[in-house]
Design a protein around this nucleic acid. Structure first.
Lengths: 133, 133
DNA sequence: CTTGACCTTCCACTAACTAGAACCTTTATG
DNA sequence: CATAAAGGTTCTAGTTAGTGGAAGGTCAAG
């Protein structure tokens, strides 16, 4: 499939996909006309990249995570170690994201939603220990 | 408190905190000697910024989120609308992060952790519909 | 056989930091 | 008191991770 199609399916822009190829994250086959040609497996990798990037992992971290998928030469003890380290990080991110959500939920529930600007917890959130965890 | 202290407490670097001041995200008081002076409330905001940035929100999104905390002039209907939109996004991120975690967990459990490179699901994860969601 | 959508490369620009130089202030120690 | 280390200041330049746009090649439809 062409890059536009892969872009649509993965949630990345075509530009970004080309950029990822430039930096060696994922290289595509080429069709006879010179167009890049993506398989479903490529699309899975791209989608994976889209997600991990949008969740705050750096490109280098994504490179590592991606290698868990595809690097056959890597010894599985190493795979396991990297995966475990990332799991710890993901769990931390999950906790933080949950906390952020809870904070916003309280905000949404406590606000009147009308024109009155006396939303009761805005001040509390900024100044006291609600956020400190 | 000085910037180094605020940096340590917030998880941001002093450089980043100065940068955030440059772009108008959070301006600190100045002590008599010209040093920036941070309150606990500032630290909460910084910590909040650190988290939301690390979870994949852009600086502009963070600016919005932060305004939920501190902008007294904003009408609370607007606050509520923004907060609700962000909640939806956070829920999506939570779902994706959970899925990513589950994927990695399967990987960790299925790998031998020894020297054999025949980790049984690496190939499956890359090529089939496990990731497609 | 041309029009429009899509592809190619390349170069410049933006966003969000990050490193380092040059210099000033505070604090601990001989 | 001197002075050195630690930490603060601004400024300029470099990096990372894209994004926009030009100039041009390819393909399917009318």
């Amino acid at each position: 499939m062409n890059i536009g199609n892969a872009a649509e399916k993965s949630g990345l822009s075509a530009k970004t996909i080309r950029y990822y190829e430039d930096i060696g994250l994922l290289q595509a086959d080429r069709a006879g006309n010179g167009y890049r040609d993506y398989s479903m497996s490529d699309v899975h990798r791209l989608r994976f990249l889209q997600r991990s990037r949008s969740l705050g992992f750096s490109v280098e971290e994504c490179r590592q995570l991606l290698s868990l998928y595809s690097d056959k030469d890597r010894e599985s003890a190493t795979v396991k170690a990297i995966a475990k380290a990332k799991l710890t990080e993901i769990d931390r991110k999950l906790a933080e994201l949950t906390e952020l959500r809870d904070t916003l939920r309280v905000l949404v529930r406590s606000c009147h939603g009308d024109k009155r600007p006396d939303c009761p917890i805005i001040e509390g959130l900024g100044g006291k220990d609600r956020v400190a965890a």
